[in-house]
């Protein structure tokens, strides 16, 4: 048994652990296992996405073009940089530089909130243009953000598809398929945003704790664990961005 005597009586050590090392290993492993659960949690949605995208490739390409790619790209930058500042927070905590730790944590929080604000405006835009699935969903009135032309269901952007029948029910079919894209878009980005909000809450808690000087060279697991969580949320977005925003861009670019 590793018993680092100097850490045996640390206030943060729970009674049933031998020493801080054992406690740290346990929490670290637990966090990774939890992230494994999270992968499968998002995995269900990714599976639905894969199935429907392979079933309705054209509708997905058209629908994807209705998203604001610049906002998506900007948010990707914001989130990646926030991951970097989070990593720097972990480094500062490990080096016991409390001042820098607080600064990096606040930066991370600010970037996270920036991401969420952009997301809010994107959602609002979708609400205004009837792109939220449900009774009021209506794609026919939607304008292509680049050309300004009205997108008419499956007629736009599917030049190379093999479906050539333009029956009366066709645009209704396209409407349903496009609606499924938006269902998945809202479910996936919504779940992601929900994780971001939890992450922001955790960051606030970390900022308060580190201002109180709770973290030291020996004990900084909370910063590391929230860091892992934050990076995981970043990874989810790294996949969401190309999957949702970048399909079939070359048809309209």
């Amino acid at each position: 048994m590793h018993s680092s005597e100097h850490s045996a009586h640390h206030p943060a050590l729970a009674h049933h652990f031998q020493d801080l090392d054992q406690q740290k290993d346990a929490t670290w492993l637990a966090m990774w296992v939890f992230l494994g659960t999270e992968i499968m949690f998002f995995g269900g949605l990714f599976l639905a996405y894969v199935i429907y995208r392979s079933s309705y490739p054209d509708a997905f390409a058209i629908a994807s073009n209705a998203l604001n790619v610049n906002m998506g790209l900007g948010n990707t930058f914001v989130l990646i940089i926030s991951s970097f500042t989070m990593a720097m927070s972990v480094y500062s905590a490990q080096m016991a530089q409390t001042g820098r730790l607080v600064v990096f944590l606040i930066l991370t929080l600010v970037l996270g909130c920036t991401f969420l604000s952009v997301k809010y405006f994107e959602y609002k835009d979708k609400f205004d243009s009837h792109l939220v699935p449900g009774r009021h969903f209506d794609f026919a009135h939607h304008h292509d953000p680049k050309t300004g032309a009205i997108l008419e269901g499956a007629h736009g952007g599917s030049a190379n598809t093999e479906s050539t029948s333009h029956e009366a029910g066709h645009s209704e079919k396209a409407r349903r398929e496009i609606q499924i894209f938006f269902s998945l878009y809202f479910a996936m980005t919504g779940l992601h945003a929900f994780h971001m909000i939890i992450g922001a809450g955790l960051l606030i808690w970390l900022i308060v704790s580190s201002m109180k000087g709770r973290f030291s060279k020996e004990y900084n697991s909370p910063v590391e664990l929230v860091g892992l969580y934050w990076h995981f949320v970043d990874i989810v977005w790294i996949f969401l961005f190309p999957l949702l925003y970048l399909i079939g861009r070359h048809h309209h670019g």
Binding site: L228, H231, D234, I238, F239, F241, P242, L243
Partner: peptide, 17 residues
Amino acid sequence: AMGIAVTKGSLVVLFFM
């Protein structure tokens, strides 16, 4: 697109995490 996403994700997992 997926290749790039996997690469980016791996970088985050391997180094940031």
